[in-house]
Amino acid sequence: MRITLIALTFASSSIFALMGMVLAKDGAKDTLPPGSVSSAEGLQAWKRIEAVVTHPRCANCHVDAKAIPIWTPAGESKPRVHGMNIHGGESRIGAETIPCSTCHVTSTTPNDPAPAPLHAGIDWQLAPVEFIWFGKSGAEICAQLKDPERNGGRDAAGLLEHLRHDASLSGFIPRAWAPGAGRTTPPGTFEDHVKDMALWGAAGQPCPD
């Protein structure tokens, strides 16, 4: 059963990857010509991106190999480990112990008010282990995001495609701005974030020192 669950994880990942290729055109619409944005403008865009990716709504599931998700309860700002002894395991979906989807059901319906668990149209999961954001500086995250070895093999256009693909599935990224009443959201909107990623990409993905 455990092996089956893990196999299903990889199978569903492959299906999502194929769907991503089909949806690649959507991401291409957002892409700006390389070099059309100055490095200074790109760095300004990165500062806005940094504010998004370091927000608890986005960073709390981008954790290290210990795979312990982080909670920032509504009304609090200090992070704490996910309750109930939860960890995502090597599968990153909790297949080895208790799947995330036991409570974070897969659904495209709007999120309920806090403290009900969040959900999305994609099976709930931690981000891949090489995509660590929680506890990292903006410069460290910037270096990771532009490194195809640590970002799922994506160039700047691929990152935009990733955003649109995720949104097409009512996934985690746009839902960061629709987490249900009582929860804070990252600055701006999802569309602002897509535009900033396009600006940053066209500027050559500059990172702060």
Binding site: P99, S101, T102, C103, H104, V105, S107, T108, T109, P117
Partner: peptide
């Protein structure tokens, strides 16, 4: 076959 909290599972899903 999988344990699920039925208070969270919506009928449409």
């Amino acid at each position: 076959g999988a344990a699920v909290r039925s208070c969270q599972a919506r009928m449409a899903d």
